[in-house]
Amino acid sequence: MVISEVHYPKDLSELFDILKRHPDALLYAGGTEILREQGGRAVELPETVISIYALPELRRVDLTERFLEIGAAITLSEILDLGDTALPPLLAEALRGIGTASLRNLATLGGNLACRSRFMDAWPVLACLDALVEFRNAGSSAWINVNRLAGQDGRPAAPIGGVMTRIRVPLERWDATALRKVGRRDYPASETAVFALAARGEKGILAEFRLAFAGETALRLEEIEARIIGRSLPLSERERRTFGGEYREAASALPRGLALQFGALVEAALDILAR
């Protein structure tokens, strides 16, 4: 068994110093995924572990009129404690559906997004809301759209290096939102996936339409969305069938069960826009 060396940096600058010496260190915040996947009496950890849960830069929450900014080490319970007036309803609903109350006291939003084996429940919602994620290195910072956490192959990807520090969620008005979790609810499994949708109409026109579906792989088809946006509401029967067909075709690479459920959810969403 490897005896790990654990570091407790006081701030980001100290963290970057440690990372310079130990570039392969494991950054540990909530750790729910890391420990849940191991069943032994003790947990196998890499040689160097850095506890980042208490880093002040990762523990801030800022709320403005335009966005909610959440530190990557804020737990899901702490986010829910912000209350329904501060939280986009779609995000609140997604977080309430994750694990149990006790698990949400450990799990962090950054950890939910950083999972590399699959997409966890927050990703589809944050993708629909066009959230941004900040990655920082010593002396530099970059914000990327959360959609870029999905690679070309639809699998989770780390597009740039650095430490995930903040998640910025735009606060916008939505006329229609939907969230559905399919498969096992209590435990992420291969057949578990989350479907999220957000749409907004303005003067009889569909002004925004975003749809994301993710489990082990992610689907966010922005080229179809771009062609739906700007159409008159309600959608015609022909438009409904055309876009439904395009989404079903794009989902054909998913496992059959998930593709069928995705198709049904898309149909239900387009039905709403056609009414």
Binding site: S102, L103, N105, L106
Partner: peptide, 24 residues
């Protein structure tokens, strides 16, 4: 962290202690 048999209060918050590594 699912069975609820290992619950403790960590700084007053309910957590499953089986998925908390000691160093935390």
């Amino acid at each position: 962290g699912r069975c609820g048999r290992c619950l403790v209060l960590l700084d007053g918050k309910l957590v499953p202690s089986c998925i908390v590594p000691a160093f935390r």
